[in-house]
Design a protein around this nucleic acid. Sequence first.
DNA 1: GTCTATAGAATGATAGAC
DNA 2: GTCTATCATTCTATAGAC
Lengths: 186, 186
Amino acid sequence: MLAERILAAARAEFSSSGYQGTSVRAIARQAGVDPALVYHYYRSKDELLHACLQAPPAMLERIVAAWSSPRGETGEALVRVTMANWSDPEASALLRTVLLTAAHHPETLERLRDLITRQLMGPARLSDDGAESRARASFIASQLLGLGLTRYVWRIEPIASMPDDEVVAAIGPTIQRYVDGDLAFA
Amino acid sequence: MLAERILAAARAEFSSSGYQGTSVRAIARQAGVDPALVYHYYRSKDELLHACLQAPPAMLERIVAAWSSPRGETGEALVRVTMANWSDPEASALLRTVLLTAAHHPETLERLRDLITRQLMGPARLSDDGAESRARASFIASQLLGLGLTRYVWRIEPIASMPDDEVVAAIGPTIQRYVDGDLAFA
DNA sequence: GTCTATAGAATGATAGAC
DNA sequence: GTCTATCATTCTATAGAC
């Protein structure tokens, strides 16, 4: 019970201020508990972050569903799933935490890589060639992460305020091409 | 002289550790000066960051040059320029600092928005319609920033180790479409 | 211009009473 | 399980001697 209150507060703090910008005391304050309790349940700030890095099941299920959409609509489906996840408070907290922390924190960086190769791309069969398949996954990740950051984190206009359908119309074909288009491999 | 040594050290620290993760003492240590000197030349940590947010002229010139490349090759040129900037130590230090700090620091976020709308897109005449033009700029930024982060900051494989030409072959057409393709505007 | 010294606050973490 | 008290460190920033 208390442990979950603390965890929820930690997710909120890490996702809005990053790892370095978050203090254990701030987490305790937001959870309405004594700072020592935070250390009691989680042994250190680092382990608390670790506990926040689990992806919510709904987020992963959306991704799996997108990959089983009809051929030719996968690109559109992945863009819609990206926006759905960023609009889901739990999923977006995880995404923000991971993206804002990965550059400074090795374990979180591993988590990001894992998220891309296993979760985002796990359900995919992009090509018979493993190397080509991983390359396609990289390009998909580069565009979808760029979309998430510009639209939801940095809120760059006008993409930040654009209706979902316009984003899908613009970026869907990009992803579709990365999924099964001709990328002129050497 | 000393002020420039301090500035160079600050750029290095901010770009590798972000704003919160960088201490004035660490900057002074790396510059080989007393911490008090840092405060003497720059009044606060915040003003020191501010001084680090100027884009190197070479970076901006590359972007202008890309926009004056022949029609039909602009997408490819912008991808090449992005990689050139991330491979230039001065430009990549600025990019890292801005991208790692923007989420927590309002002034830096403004700098990022300015960088996109004025510098990256300033030389462009994407369309006669101002709104459509800004929308195209958003999409271009989303893909190019995503490329920078996955390839140079997070070093997600295989895009991180891929030859430039393969990246251009994959992402060039995406940018070209955002520049002058049919995005199905409502 | 340059450094010593330090204020004043916040930090991660622990020991131990209840 | 919960809290008080505290250690040891680090931080931004300043005052003031030389």
